[in-house]
Each structure stands twice: as C-alpha cells, then as structure tokens.
C-alpha cells in the first residue's frame, strides 16, 4: 500500500496526465481518420483494418477520464491551473467530435461499400484529404509544443485550404451544377465533404487554444490595436 502511495506521489499530477491523455485521444482520432478514408476511398468493401467503433468508444472513455481528472485537480490544487484545465475540457470536446465525424465517414463507407468514384472532383478531394491528414500531424505537434506560430499558421490557412474547397464541392452538388455523378455518389460526396470540413474546423478550434485566451477559443485571433 505504501509503495502505491509513493508511486502516486512521484507520478505526474492529474492535469499533466489529462493533457497526455488528450494527445493520445488525438492520435486515436488520426488513426480513425486514416482508416475511415481508406475504407471509403480505396477499399471495395467495408472491411476494416482497425475496429473504428472500438476506437471511438476509447476516445469517449478518455473524454470522461480527462474531465474527471481536471475537476479533481482543480478541486484539490486550487485555481492556479484553472485556465489550463478549462482549455483542456474544451479541447477534448473538439477531439471527441472529430472521433464522431470519423465514425460518420465509416458509416458512409458501409452504406456505400464500393469505392467512392467522384469523377472530376477526385483531385480536389484527394488534396483535401491529404491536407486534413497533414493538419492532424501539425495540430498534434502545435499542441504538444505549445507552438504559437505553428498554431497561427493552421488557423490562417484553414478557410483557404480546406473550408472553402469543401464548400465548393457541396455547392456544386446542391445547386445541380454537377450532373455526371450517380445520386448515391453525389450524396456520399456531399456528406463526405461536409464531414471533412467539420473535422478540419475542430482541428482549427484546437489550434486556437494555443494562440487565443480561453474566452476566444474557436474564434479568430484578435488583431492587436497597436
């Protein structure tokens, strides 16, 4: 028993443990994303290399665990880590949502078991997919290192590199400009583009936590008046 108490004393405090768990959550999200995209875009069936639903449950469990740890840490150690704790609580909500969208992509893949053919949107879609994949890596690094410049760069380029491109595809599909896709492919593509945008938006929210004060999480960086 005493050995156990000493080990706890020597271990990282709960807030540090919670931050480390949030990075693990993001890493799981990244794996889920890669697998979901592979199944939808490359596989001719809905067979999974990894059980994404189990991974999503793991993310949800981590979210509850992080909340409990932050609450316990702030109750025991006082208010000096309150900002960090509140940012983390907000962050894990975004991470959990990313997990949900990855699961939604998987649902699409299962409802549309054949490889998704998107005609002339293929190039744009592949660019978006790769950009989102890249953003996962950059967001994880920016958060781990609390790299303000890296986070700022992610925030600056989000609209242009992902948001706008996804909106363009959806607009084309909804307005009827694109006529060479089957209704199944068009619907799948519209939803898929929307999910990719949402994943990227949540990654952007995470990046804002490195740059912005707590009350401006998820918003643009406020320009200095000076």
């Amino acid at each position: 028993m005493w050995r156990e108490l000493i080990n706890i004393w020597k271990s990282h405090n709960l807030l540090e443990q919670a931050w480390n768990e949030s990075f693990e959550m993001l890493e799981i999200d990244r794996r889920m994303y890669l697998e979901a995209v592979r199944v939808l875009r490359e596989a001719d069936d809905a067979a999974l290399n990894e059980d994404i639903r189990q991974l999503d449950k793991k993310v949800n469990k981590y979210e509850r665990d992080v909340r409990r740890k932050v609450m316990t840490h702030c109750a025991v150690e006082g208010a000096h880590d309150l900002t960090s704790g509140m940012i983390l609580i907000s962050l894990v909500i975004d991470i959990e949502r990313v997990g949900d969208y990855c699961k939604n992509i998987l649902d699409l893949a299962q409802m549309h078991p054949k490889t998704l053919k998107v005609s002339h949107y293929d190039k744009a879609l592949t660019l978006i997919e790769n950009e989102v994949k890249e953003r996962f890596n950059r967001t994880i690094e920016a958060l781990k290192n609390q790299d303000v410049e890296a986070a700022r760069s992610l925030m600056r380029t989000y609209k242009q590199e992902v948001g706008r491109e996804c909106d363009k595809i959806v607009e084309d599909l909804v307005s009827g400009t694109c006529v060479d896709l089957s209704s199944a492919d068009a619907t799948t593509l519209a939803l898929y583009a929307r999910y990719l945008k949402r994943i990227s938006a949540h990654l952007n929210n995470m990046a804002t936590s490195v740059v912005n004060p707590f009350h401006r999480l998820g918003f643009k960086e406020k320009e200095s008046k000076n």
């Binding site: 004393w9 990282h12 405090n13 025991v76 150690e77």
Partner: peptide, 10 residues
C-alpha cells in the same frame, strides 16, 4: 496538495 491530486483519483 501541489502533488496530491493523484491521490484523489477514483
């Protein structure tokens, strides 16, 4: 208490 939050884990 600075290092004690781990003690209050469930």
């Amino acid at each position: 208490m600075q290092n004690a939050s781990g003690f209050f884990e469930r």
